[in-house]
Design a protein around this nucleic acid. Sequence first.
DNA 1: CGAACCCTTGATACGCTTCAACAAGAGTGG
DNA 2: CCACTCTTGTTGAAGCGTATCAAGGGTTCG
Lengths: 238, 238
Amino acid sequence: MSRSPSSSIEPVLVPQGGRAMCATLWGAVLGQPDLSDAALSAVLAWARWRHLASGDVVFACQQPAEQLFAVLEGCVGLGTLREGQAFHLERSVHGPGWLDLSSAWVGQGHVQDAQAMGSALVLELPLAALRPLFLRYPELQERLLLALAQTVQKLTGATHDLMAKDAQKRLVGWLLQRMSAPAGDVALRERKRELAAQLAITPETLSRLLRQLMASGLIEVQGYSIKLLNLNALRALA
Amino acid sequence: MSRSPSSSIEPVLVPQGGRAMCATLWGAVLGQPDLSDAALSAVLAWARWRHLASGDVVFACQQPAEQLFAVLEGCVGLGTLREGQAFHLERSVHGPGWLDLSSAWVGQGHVQDAQAMGSALVLELPLAALRPLFLRYPELQERLLLALAQTVQKLTGATHDLMAKDAQKRLVGWLLQRMSAPAGDVALRERKRELAAQLAITPETLSRLLRQLMASGLIEVQGYSIKLLNLNALRALA
DNA sequence: CGAACCCTTGATACGCTTCAACAAGAGTGG
DNA sequence: CCACTCTTGTTGAAGCGTATCAAGGGTTCG
């Protein structure tokens, strides 16, 4: 049986080129077009990167937030860490991408816990050190604004989905969004329980929904790879 | 029977002092401490304000977004406008406060519809005109960053509530947050259907929940004013 | 081999929505 | 002034969607 998700749980590639490679990844976080080398290296001078093993805590709820967090590589989950029980996942960030841009600005501590799902490379950026740079490199601040705005849009979409769509519509929407070529193949990069968590349903319900869609001939499920057979019908569902 | 919400539906106070009064409200949107007069008036030079009657559309979904929107006075609802049916409310913004900061930055059109709930005074700020100002007044950009970050935190909280709490917990949480003095009085400023929409439940369910809490002796409901009788028990519920 | 994990399947329970009916103002026009 | 309608909130009965609990199969690994 195919086990695609495990590949993202393998030992992370340690950046061989050191700073060079990190800079490349880091550029991906800040978006296109690439920032000037001067701005990039000025920011990198203050950056600190941490290598995390599976399960490591990146930051904890209510802990004072003074840094911007980005995931360079691997995957980090946002949610609630409950002692004695499993981590309750709410959202996950795959590198490269921002993990938490907002908490440091508000300055009132983190609102969620963050835990590495598998090995990950995380970058921390002290906001206090960054502020002076904004005057010299205004593009930098604009990138952060854009990233925050995108986060707002994504969250708005998420709340809308939760309020207006049922589980099936959310699942189909997720599949369509993640579909690669027009062919319509989806290779799951995560465990099904994590997918379920992102859709705010239980693993049991996810299993039933997939079976149901398969019975309707709309998709074909084989382990961690899903084929979308009838795109039009799926779009009509979502 | 007390009808508090209607007061927010009365004809809005037209700013008598014109620009002066608008500037004061506008300052409230940008937060404390007040920006320099120079920065404020530079921004205001580009601002356009619109007086809206109840039901007027501020912007529509997918419509290209090139401006920042703020509510100076009154209340504007965000949600989905469906032809033939009633507006589906998801979130509402009471002035003074930002209505939509994110869409213009992303530059891909609005994600929701916005409709005035009662008379309102809305301010539009073309992003293109604003950009040059950022170089001269970096504080301005920082205010926007902060506002965006706060929006992210609020939305994160909202999605968390939707995913983890049932309707009763959301309602009790809402009541506690909106409670004024330690006394524990809540005067509803909105119709109960709008409150229900914000909590992502139906009006029927809201009615039943209020009755249920009243039967438990935790609250006392009289029309649009609610007394919280047992704060500790309520906090334990949420 | 046994242990641990992930996914699946079934039975049941609960929360919330939907639909329908009704009461209580508020506004309107005869 | 009263009948009429419109809106808002309330209540009840029925039904859907999803969670919960329990059990079993497949895979991986020591």
